[in-house]
Measured scan of single mutants.
Amino acid sequence: MIINNLKLIREKKKISQSELAALLEVSRQTINGIEKNKYNASLQLALKIAYYLNTPLEDIFQWQ
C-alpha cells in the first residue's frame, strides 16, 4: 500500500492544485485524482512532483 502525502505537503508549501498542475503541465483534475488516490502517478510525474515541491519522493509517496 502507498501512503500519499501530496496534499499535506502541497498545502504546507502554500501551493494550490492549479499552480502545481500548471508547473507539471497536467490538469488540476489530475492532481486532485492523485491526492484522492483515484489515480496513480506515473514514475515520471511522481519525480516531477518531488522536484517542483523540493521534497524527496519517498516523503510524498511512502510504501507501507
Results as ranks from 00 to 15, higher is better:
M1R: 08
M1I: 11
M1E: 06
M1K: 10
I2P: 06
I2V: 13
I2T: 11
I2A: 08
I3K: 13
I3L: 13
I3W: 07
I3S: 11
N4M: 06
N4V: 06
N4F: 07
N5V: 04
N5K: 07
N5S: 04
L6W: 02
K7S: 07
K7H: 07
K7A: 12
K7V: 06
K7M: 07
L8I: 15
L8R: 13
L8F: 12
L8G: 10
L8K: 15
R10F: 06
R10I: 07
R10P: 02
E11T: 10
E11D: 08
K12H: 12
K12D: 08
K13Y: 08
K14A: 09
K14T: 04
K14G: 15
K14D: 09
I15C: 07
S16V: 04
S16L: 05
S16Y: 04
S16C: 08
Q17L: 11
S18K: 13
S18M: 12
E19Y: 08
E19F: 05
L20Y: 02
L20N: 00
L20F: 06
A21G: 06
A21E: 01
A21T: 04
A22G: 11
A22K: 13
A22I: 11
L23T: 08
L23Q: 11
L23N: 08
L24M: 07
L24I: 09
E25A: 12
E25N: 15
E25P: 04
E25S: 14
V26E: 04
S27L: 02
S27A: 04
R28W: 14
R28F: 10
R28A: 14
R28Q: 15
R28V: 15
Q29S: 14
Q29V: 11
T30N: 04
T30C: 15
I31Y: 05
I31M: 05
I31E: 01
I34K: 00
I34Q: 00
I34A: 00
E35D: 02
E35A: 04
K36S: 15
K36G: 09
K38T: 13
K38G: 07
K38D: 09
Y39E: 11
Y39N: 07
N40G: 14
N40M: 13
A41T: 12
A41C: 15
S42H: 07
S42P: 14
S42E: 06
L43A: 09
L43P: 12
L43H: 12
L43Q: 09
Q44N: 12
Q44A: 14
Q44F: 09
Q44R: 11
L45K: 00
A46T: 06
A46V: 06
A46H: 04
A46D: 02
A46I: 07
A46N: 03
A46W: 12
A46Y: 13
K48R: 11
K48F: 02
K48Y: 03
I49A: 04
I49V: 05
A50Q: 04
A50V: 04
A50G: 04
A50R: 02
A50D: 00
Y51D: 08
Y51R: 09
Y51W: 10
Y51T: 08
Y51Q: 09
Y52Q: 07
Y52F: 14
Y52N: 05
Y52V: 15
Y52D: 00
L53K: 02
L53D: 00
N54F: 05
N54E: 15
N54I: 04
T55Y: 05
T55C: 09
T55M: 06
P56T: 05
L57N: 03
L57I: 12
L57S: 02
E58C: 13
D59E: 14
I60E: 01
I60K: 00
F61T: 01
F61C: 06
F61D: 00
F61A: 01
F61Y: 03
F61G: 02
Q62F: 09
Q62I: 11
Q62T: 10
Q62H: 09
Q62Y: 08
W63E: 04
W63F: 10
W63I: 07
Q64D: 14
Q64V: 11
Q64L: 05
Q64W: 06
